[in-house]
């Protein structure tokens, strides 16, 4: 049996001039091994995959499999991040190394962290780094707080996408401030991607129902008991949430409204 669904007139997700079918962006950290990473990414259907830039092990395991062997850059859009950077300088330096590593690749995920306990962004350093990177020709997808004013300023300095957190990185607490996320979405002329904080499929659906353009996640998939299955669940939740957003939900009412007509009752 096949089911007919109503045609959905959705705009594609376009980031820095490139069109994507999937609205789920995934990280590659915290997996047990490359095989588990690969299976989860395939199940997610994601096209944009984040990576980190770190020192190569010198003299240890020279034949260790490289992440880029399982994530060929011609098959995925790689999104190098600046995770672990607490200063503008370190973040800019990391992006420039990533550009060299990936042969001139311009798309980066900027995050400048302010505090180890919360991993909240250092907003002033983030703005400063974003301006430097945009001037240097990078397409910057920027991790930020859920503050609508800062989100707008990051758009104004030329970021390609603005990525507010829903809850602290790796916390799985879900969408803590839906009204701020909604305000950010309503104000925006660039894609708004929720980055960090979702824990399970329903969290993703809620973010998408608010009108977000996509969700970037890592721990929610990698720390699930079955990462590939959670990746599949997230894929469906994001599609479902997007369709619900486009469909336009019914208004909330405090009291009941019968679904069957009163007219024609025979008793």
């Amino acid at each position: 049996m096949t089911t007919e669904t109503a045609p959905v007139n959705d705009k594609p997700l376009i980031i820095a001039g490139k069109t994507y079918q999937s609205r789920l962006l995934v990280g590659t950290g915290k997996y047990k091994n490359n095989e588990e990473t690969k299976q989860a990414i395939e199940a997610s259907g994601a096209e944009i995959i984040t990576i980190a830039v770190r020192r190569t092990n010198i003299g240890q395991n020279p034949d260790e499999p490289n992440l880029l062997d399982i994530l060929p850059p011609d098959q995925y859009t790689l999104l190098p991040n600046t995770a672990g950077c607490y200063t503008t300088k370190d973040a800019v330096r990391t992006c420039r190394l990533a550009r060299e590593l990936l042969d001139g690749h311009k798309l980066v995920k900027l995050e400048v962290l302010g505090d180890e306990k919360t991993l909240f962004p250092d907003i002033t350093a983030t703005l400063e780094a974003a301006e430097i990177l945009v001037k240097d020709g990078f397409d910057v997808m920027v991790y930020t707080s859920d503050d609508p004013l800062i989100a707008k300023r990051l758009e104004d300095v030329g970021c390609a996408a603005v990525m507010p957190l829903a809850a602290p990185i790796g916390s799985g607490l879900g969408i803590r401030n839906p009204y701020n996320i909604l305000t950010i979405v309503e104000n925006a002329n660039v894609p708004i991607i929720v980055d960090a904080g979702v824990g399970t499929a329903s969290d993703s659906a809620i973010a998408m129902e608010l009108g977000c353009d996509g969700i970037l996640m890592n721990t929610a998939i990698a720390a699930a008991q079955n990462p590939a299955l959670m990746a599949s669940a997230m894929r469906k939740a994001i599609e479902a949430g997007r369709e619900a957003y486009l469909a336009g939900r019914m208004p909330r009412k405090r009291f009941a409204s019968a679904s069957s007509p009163i007219e024609g009752l025979f008793f």
């Binding site: 990280g27 590659t28 950290g29 915290k30 997996y31 990473t37 984040t50 990576i51 980190a52 830039v53 770190r54 020192r55 190569t56 010198i58 490289n66 992440l67 880029l68 790689l78 190098p80 991040n81 995770a83 190394l97 590593l101 990936l102 990185i169 790796g170 970037l216 996640m217 890592n218 721990t219 990698a222």
Partner: peptide
């Protein structure tokens, strides 16, 4: 000298 590579990250 710093020699870097891509690794898993979020």
């Amino acid at each position: 000298v710093e020699i870097v590579q891509a690794i898993g990250g979020g």
